[in-house]
């Protein structure tokens, strides 16, 4: 049986008149990588901060690693790791000193600390830089150190708040390898991101927009639920073709990819026939049409647009 490591019931948070998080109910299961997806300002960080016990909910309840976040925030804090996009390292301390510090504030004794630090340095390939000041590391290395600090006490649950913001693609990929390794060892990971490619690396996703939860499920489930069909089209006049397609009710979204137009249709409309026909009717020649798999990004954009139009999800 899979047990919920995080469970929220109608969790809400307001800042004055602004509702940052509205009525969020969800469950995160043990050992999974759970992605929290949404544009900037959607309420991702606010939700994570409530789950970490450093921000009180305005209403609703939340349970993290078996403790009520409003009533026992300190018990929650002892059993979670937390890493933000700011990395929160002390730049004037060396890599080892940073690790020692975080091991210390999580209550690890000297002997345990030495063992853990040696292990973490080896795992992350930081051994050669152990004595380097954290402030002199590049973004990718800082990120590794920050992850090492956040997991030094081997927490059963790890919160990552936009951990890859401003990090180069290679480092990002290595970082996700690490996340999967951590998860394979049994740690539950809750990660926020607005990178769609990262969303597909999660076991399950929650879409949050304007503080409201739009959908929860595996990437495949979420994409399937939107019932989108997508084609890549090469047309003579891509800009005019895109403008035209956007006026049609059957078309959900049009996006430029170099010479290609990526067109999503909904309501079971077959885009392989519909798109060339619609363009031909307006005298725009189509050189190629190729069906392709709808992505999380397609689903997300579609959902956000529906929400913005005030339509049903």
């Amino acid at each position: 049986m899979t047990e919920a490591v995080v469970r929220t019931e109608h969790l809400s948070r307001s800042f004055g008149d602004l509702v940052a998080v509205r009525d969020v109910s969800l469950e995160v299961r043990r050992g999974e990588i759970f992605g929290f997806l949404g544009p900037n300002g959607a309420g991702k960080s606010t939700t994570i901060r409530m789950l970490c016990g450093i921000l009180d909910p305005t209403s609703g309840r939340g349970f993290v690693v078996g403790h009520d976040i409003a009533k026992e925030p300190e018990k929650v804090k002892a059993r979670i790791g937390y890493m933000t996009q700011r990395f929160s390292l002390y730049e004037d301390l060396s890599v080892t000193e940073n690790l020692e510090f975080y091991a210390g504030i999580y209550g690890l004794g000297p002997r345990e600390r030495a063992v853990r630090i040696a292990a973490v340095l080896a795992r992350t390939g930081l051994e050669g830089r152990a004595r380097q000041l954290a402030g002199t590391l590049s973004g990718g290395w800082k990120q590794r150190v920050a992850l090492a600090c956040a997991t030094i006490h081997e927490p059963p649950l790890l919160f990552l708040d936009e951990p890859t913001a401003g990090v180069d693609p290679v480092s990002r990929r290595e970082f996700w390898d690490q996340i999967h390794r951590i998860s394979a060892e049994g740690t539950t990971v809750l990660v926020t991101t607005h990178y769609m490619d990262e969303a597909e690396r999660c076991h399950r996703l929650a879409f949050i927009f304007r503080g409201t939860l739009l959908d929860v499920g595996t990437p495949e489930e979420i994409v399937a639920r939107r019932a989108l069909r997508v084609v890549e089209v090469v047309a003579a006049d891509a800009v005019r073709a895109a403008d035209l397609l956007r006026t049609l009710p059957e078309v959900d979204e049009v996006a430029h990819y170099g010479p290609l137009l990526r067109v999503a249709t909904r309501g079971g409309v077959d885009p392989e026939r519909f798109v060339p026909d619609a363009l031909a009717a307006h005298g725009i020649a189509v050189t190629s049409v190729r069906a392709t798999r709808p992505t999380v990004e397609d689903a997300f954009v579609s959902m956000v647009k529906d929400d913005a139009r005030g339509g049903a999800v």
Binding site: I54, E74, A78, T84, R86, L89, E91, I105
Partner: peptide, 14 residues
Amino acid sequence: ERGTLEQLIVSPIR
């Protein structure tokens, strides 16, 4: 200012 306070208050330190 440097954002490390948030990391401290999210830790179990009293």
